[in-house]
Design a protein around this nucleic acid. Structure first.
Lengths: 199, 199
DNA sequence: TCGATAAATTGAACACTGATCAATAACGAT
DNA sequence: ATCGTTATTGATCAGTGTTCAATTTATCGA
């Protein structure tokens, strides 16, 4: 063929990213290949390289969307509870839900490695920061309830610690590295158990 | 060439695993290739397939060693402190040290994915279990100090939660996904902050 | 000591991958 | 209609993991 103009460049990128995401969701990061993505778009490889310079670049773009989506999920539940302790539990549950619903894409965010030297992580630092902000805010609101004993630690510090911990639990649970008990319920219980220690 | 008998089959496996480990340590999981490992061994690919059926299998074998080594490191420090709280902190520090010293191999343990369907994780379940045991034991010893309030949670449950949390903090710290502050000292502080909530 | 059998080692071959880039086909404007 | 521009293709290249016939050597029995 030659020039078709069926899709604008933006539509092409949209096609590419959504097909790539679908591919990852179904078969994991390893299933993501340039040829296959192009095939599903109804184009050939050459055209795919018009919206991304690399396979790595394609992955980064998909990841960016995933983080955005995750942030939106968390922000959605953050307003649903007045009491900070309850809000923290909701945030944890939402994080776990997201990790279980979009396991493959979520793992890709944390497991993909750009080639050495290159990189400097892209825009999604901002999203990460916003997420930590949600947690820190809830911890700040909860602060009066546990004042006195350990008031040295700032909510920001606590947020990083707590959220890294939540992340670790979700990751090990979702990848099945926790041994036998991988049920949703038991993981949720662990998260609650963790949050209890921070409120 | 033909038959040389320079190395026994065990020596060959040793060669393969150590060269593979060196390769991963220096260039990450992506740098691990059959041809390159064989080249460094002084053999060709065909011979490498005598000690592993797959690249995946080779990775699994390297991972097994890594987990073993990690377990040994933790067991070594577990005896160095009588007070359980202090012992927990030592365990955390040792875990972080290991993650920072052998970052690439350590990441590979958690990030490698076997092809779908295949697998069932191998022997290193046992090592993982032993590690949880160390943590649970320390938590059990620390239990009297915090009895009353939340004695419902068993030390085993707490161990899984605490250790997953430690893992998450180390992982995000080591992969630089925590934003700016990636220093060893600050990570260590976070771990202490976490342990304080569990003792 | 000499063959014969068995074992170890090779490297060419196959099917795949990401990436490149000349050639081509169709659009939009003149 | 014609021309320039641009989207699209697909052959091509270098690389990967994996296989396996062929070759070379050690080992053992006669």
């Amino acid at each position: 063929m030659g020039r078709r103009n069926l899709h604008s460049r933006d539509e092409l990128r949209e096609l590419a990213l959504s097909e790539a995401a679908r591919l990852v969701d179904s078969g994991g990061m390893a299933a993501l290949g340039m040829r296959e993505v192009a095939r599903r778009m109804g184009y050939t490889v050459g055209s795919l390289y018009m919206v991304c310079t690399n396979l790595d670049d394609l992955i980064v773009q998909v990841n960016e969307r995933t983080v955005m989506q995750l942030r939106a999920s968390l922000e959605a539940v953050a307003g649903r509870a007045r009491q900070p302790a309850r809000r923290l539990r909701l945030l944890c549950a939402a994080y776990l839900d997201f990790a279980q619903e979009h396991t493959q894409r979520w793992r890709m965010v944390f497991e993909h490695r750009l080639p050495p030297g290159q990189a400097a992580p892209p825009t999604y630092r901002g999203h990460t920061h916003a997420i930590f902000g949600l947690v820190a805010s809830a911890l700040r609101d909860a602060a009066p309830a546990r004042e006195g004993s350990r008031s040295r630690d700032t909510p920001e510090e606590l947020a990083v610690v707590l959220w890294s911990a939540v992340h670790g639990i979700c990751m090990l649970a979702v990848t099945g590295k926790l041994g036998v008990s991988g049920t949703h319920a038991s993981t949720r219980r662990m998260l609650d158990l963790l949050v209890d220690r921070f409120t």
